[in-house]
Nucleic acid binder design. Structure first.
Lengths: 331, 331
DNA sequence: CTGAAAGCGCTTACAG
DNA sequence: CTGAAAGCGCTTACAG
């Protein structure tokens, strides 16, 4: 056993303040009614003793915590550290803490979920990973609100927050056509992600309507993936006039590969990415891309969770937040 | 109030297994002695009911959790997402969860610490930020082990894990001299970080011994900072033959700025970074750098915390883990 | 508004 | 090894 500094409890505060322990509790419990006089006495005593309510005793009774579980897979994509930072800042301001879980698999594992269940998290955000229904039954049964961030699942079992991927990719297609491309390519991210599928769908629909030649390649949302795919395209001899790459980090790999082979961007080939990560604006790359409105997406997620945490409704919707095309020098 | 699914407790398991609640508790508490017969009965009953010990009730008594607080500031530097991922993976494997705190200030704030104290974390890792002594008194008093990761503080009040910054920067200096540089520059990161100071100290000592001209610049460990500092250096007309940049992300900014001004790397100027982030190996950059041994640094931190969490000793030391020079095409 | 008391789900001496 | 009981620090009906 550790020998600990004397732990200040509500009882100690009560004694010093000359009130009951219940009254101390009421001062720290939102919504309870206490007279100003009692409140002042309690707060003064609490300050003197350095009292802080024990979150665990609290959670034991209320069966609630102020912990948000955040599950993230692709921390290597610079898009996600920014997302993490914004979520942490937003929730910390609201008095909530972030329990961070990094999953290695495309699909979230039972262990990852168990970690969150063990700590009885008040809400869950899953970014960048899919999940099977049975894994989340626990959350539903316990009325823990859940948001899929930057991913959606076709059935309407989940609340999801995404960028307007379909519309965005249609606009990107139109933009490349306007720029005069008569032969284009799409480089997909992981095939099992909704983002890659939606971006492919929107892009393809417009391209096909305009009788532009389209080649599709599958990659994996990494720099190396983009680089290798571009090398493959180059090896096929007929480099397309425009390439829409499903995310920025892959697009940077594509740019580097084309440069190594002295293919001029944008003169010979135009490149468009997706995300608008910081590096896209670096002078070396100056990548034309679609900006994902992270701040708005985070806001939307936080608002939903906060509402559902106050009173669980189980409401689900696929929310799409509008981004915008950022034109730089690769087109 | 939420209407919750019936919560399975140790009592329920005890009833089904035909043993006392204490016995159920003993099965789940490491170190307690239970007969195999009892254990089997309990585990069977627990499985049938889907029992999971309540962490909060547990923590209330033991005054311990399986939560590690991880404080991070510079998540924008790609070095840190990798650190975060490795810590999360390592601790999850050991059954510990990560409470993530992102601080915005160079110095950790009282609020950040309060967040960790509220959840009675078992251990704390602080990366990339400094902290004043008074803020951490709470941890000491409560015997919560603490590690400074990639930062150290001159007094020996803290256990810290760093790369061998001093030795590394001496070697980098020697390397640049060997390569024939007779005029060099050092671009510092945030002046109040131990990493930047140590790297400057080691580099300077060797450079001065060899009568090589040295100019020093202060920047801020960001890409933009590196970029702007390089522009300033260029404006001074006499671009040094070698530049040691205190971290990679700044070094990439330096490389981009020099390229924009058509200064040949490494022919006219050689660049050495520090960290060996993923991007340093990208073909566009191919940056010579010092590899920070993240895996070993994480291991060292985890081992220390695990030991101190079992039995707190308060032992402190400044541990330095050896990295290595990675020669690429900027030198 | 306030206090006394029950109880959340565990761990842990204490007997046996 | 095992059970009955006390107690961790709170919240929350229940009276007053």
């Amino acid at each position: 056993m550790r020998i600990l500094k004397y732990h200040v409890t509500a009882k100690d505060v009560a004694k010093l303040a000359g009130v009951s322990q219940s009254s101390v509790s009421r001062v720290y419990f939102e919504g309870a009614s206490v007279s100003n006089k009692t409140r002042e006495k309690v707060l003064a005593a609490a300050k003197e003793l350095g009292y802080r309510p024990n979150e665990f005793a609290r959670s034991l009774i209320t069966n609630r915590t102020k912990i948000i579980g955040l599950v993230m897979k692709g921390i290597h994509n610079p898009f996600y550290p920014e997302v993490l930072k914004q979520f942490t800042t937003a929730f910390n301001k609201l008095g909530y803490s972030i329990l961070f879980v990094s999953t290695n698999n495309d699909e979230i594992q039972k262990e990852d979920i168990d970690m969150l269940r063990n700590y009885n998290v008040a809400g869950v955000i899953i970014t960048d990973a899919s999940l099977s229904l049975n894994v989340t039954e626990d959350f539903k049964e316990n009325q823990v609100p859940l948001v899929l961030f930057n991913r959606k699942i076709d059935n309407d079992q989940f609340y999801s927050v995404c960028c307007n991927n379909l519309d965005a990719s249609e606009k990107i297609a139109k933009y490349l056509i306007e720029k005069g491309c008569s032969k284009v390519a799409y480089i997909a991210g992981n095939a099992n992600t909704s983002t890659s599928r939606d971006r492919e769908k929107g892009f393809t629909s417009i391209i096909e309507k305009n009788n532009v030649t389209l080649n599709k390649y599958t990659s994996d949302y990494t720099y190396e993936g983009g680089y290798k795919t571009a090398k493959k395209i180059i090896a096929e001899k007929e480099v397309p006039e425009g390439i829409f790459v499903a995310n920025d980090i892959m697009a940077l790999g594509v740019v580097d590969a084309l440069r190594e082979n002295s293919i001029m961007i944008p003169a010979e080939t135009k490149i468009v990415g997706f995300d608008n990560i910081e590096m896209a604006s670096w002078p070396t790359y100056n990548l034309t891309t679609w900006e994902q409105p992270i701040t708005k997406m985070v806001e939307q997620t936080v608002n939903y969770l906060m509402t559902e945490m106050v009173e669980f409704s189980g409401y689900t919707e696929s929310v799409e937040v509008n981004g915008a095309l950022i034109v730089r020098k690769t087109t």
